[in-house]
Simulated scan of single mutants.
Amino acid sequence: MLRGIEDGWFTGEIADAAFAYQTKLEKGEKLIVGVNSHTGSVTGDLEILRVSHEVEVEQRRDLADRRSGRDQQAVDDSLAELVRAATGDDNLIEPMLAAVRVEATLGEICGALREVWGDYQEPARF
Rank of each mutant, 00 (worst) to 15 (best):
residue 70 R to K: 07
residue 53 H to M: 13
residue 123 P to W: 10
residue 58 E to K: 15
residue 7 D to G: 02
residue 60 R to K: 13
residue 6 E to A: 10
residue 72 Q to D: 02
residue 103 E to Y: 10
residue 58 E to G: 13
residue 107 G to I: 11
residue 13 E to V: 12
residue 10 F to G: 12
residue 69 G to Y: 04
residue 85 A to Q: 11
residue 33 V to P: 06
residue 61 R to Y: 09
residue 25 L to F: 04
residue 83 V to Y: 01
residue 32 I to Q: 08
residue 23 T to G: 03
residue 101 R to A: 08
residue 17 A to V: 12
residue 18 A to M: 12
residue 59 Q to F: 12
residue 59 Q to L: 14
residue 121 Q to E: 15
residue 88 G to D: 02
residue 50 R to C: 07
residue 72 Q to E: 07
residue 80 A to H: 05
residue 118 G to E: 05
residue 60 R to C: 03
residue 112 A to W: 00
residue 71 D to T: 03
residue 44 G to Q: 06
residue 64 A to K: 09
residue 36 N to C: 00
residue 90 D to A: 12
residue 33 V to T: 12
residue 24 K to S: 10
residue 112 A to P: 00
residue 21 Y to L: 14
residue 64 A to Y: 07
residue 28 G to C: 04
residue 78 S to Q: 01
residue 126 F to H: 10
residue 10 F to L: 15
residue 74 A to K: 03
residue 99 A to T: 00
residue 21 Y to E: 04
residue 86 A to D: 08
residue 1 M to W: 12
residue 49 L to N: 06
residue 13 E to L: 12
residue 100 V to D: 06
residue 109 I to C: 05
residue 24 K to F: 02
residue 2 L to R: 15
residue 78 S to E: 04
residue 80 A to I: 07
residue 12 G to N: 04
residue 100 V to M: 09
residue 67 R to V: 14
residue 75 V to G: 00
residue 46 L to I: 10
residue 31 L to S: 03
residue 78 S to M: 03
residue 72 Q to V: 08
residue 45 D to C: 10
residue 59 Q to D: 09
residue 74 A to M: 11
residue 68 S to A: 13
residue 88 G to C: 00
residue 115 E to M: 14
residue 76 D to M: 05
residue 61 R to N: 05
residue 119 D to T: 15
residue 41 S to G: 08
residue 49 L to E: 06
residue 52 S to I: 02
residue 113 L to V: 06
residue 49 L to Y: 06
residue 51 V to S: 13
residue 35 V to T: 03
residue 42 V to L: 07
residue 37 S to C: 14
residue 42 V to G: 05
residue 5 I to A: 10
residue 117 W to N: 11
residue 15 A to H: 11
residue 48 I to S: 12
residue 45 D to H: 15
residue 39 T to A: 08
residue 113 L to K: 04
residue 103 E to F: 04
residue 100 V to R: 14
residue 103 E to N: 10
residue 3 R to G: 08
residue 56 E to Q: 11
residue 52 S to C: 04
residue 46 L to P: 07
residue 73 Q to C: 01
residue 19 F to S: 14
residue 43 T to C: 11
residue 121 Q to G: 10
residue 52 S to M: 04
residue 1 M to K: 14
residue 33 V to C: 12
residue 35 V to L: 05
residue 71 D to S: 00
residue 61 R to D: 05
residue 28 G to S: 02
residue 47 E to D: 15
residue 65 D to K: 12
residue 21 Y to S: 08
residue 65 D to S: 14
residue 53 H to S: 12
residue 99 A to Q: 01
residue 47 E to P: 13
residue 54 E to H: 04
residue 7 D to N: 06
residue 78 S to W: 03
residue 29 E to Q: 03
residue 39 T to V: 14
residue 63 L to V: 09
residue 12 G to M: 02
residue 10 F to A: 09
residue 13 E to G: 02
residue 13 E to Q: 13
residue 27 K to E: 09
residue 101 R to P: 03
residue 110 C to P: 00
residue 123 P to D: 02
residue 83 V to D: 03
residue 83 V to M: 10
residue 48 I to V: 15
residue 123 P to G: 09
residue 118 G to M: 09
residue 2 L to V: 13
residue 95 P to N: 01
residue 42 V to S: 05
residue 94 E to S: 15
residue 53 H to Y: 08
residue 104 A to P: 01
residue 41 S to E: 11
residue 85 A to Y: 07
residue 70 R to P: 00
residue 112 A to I: 03
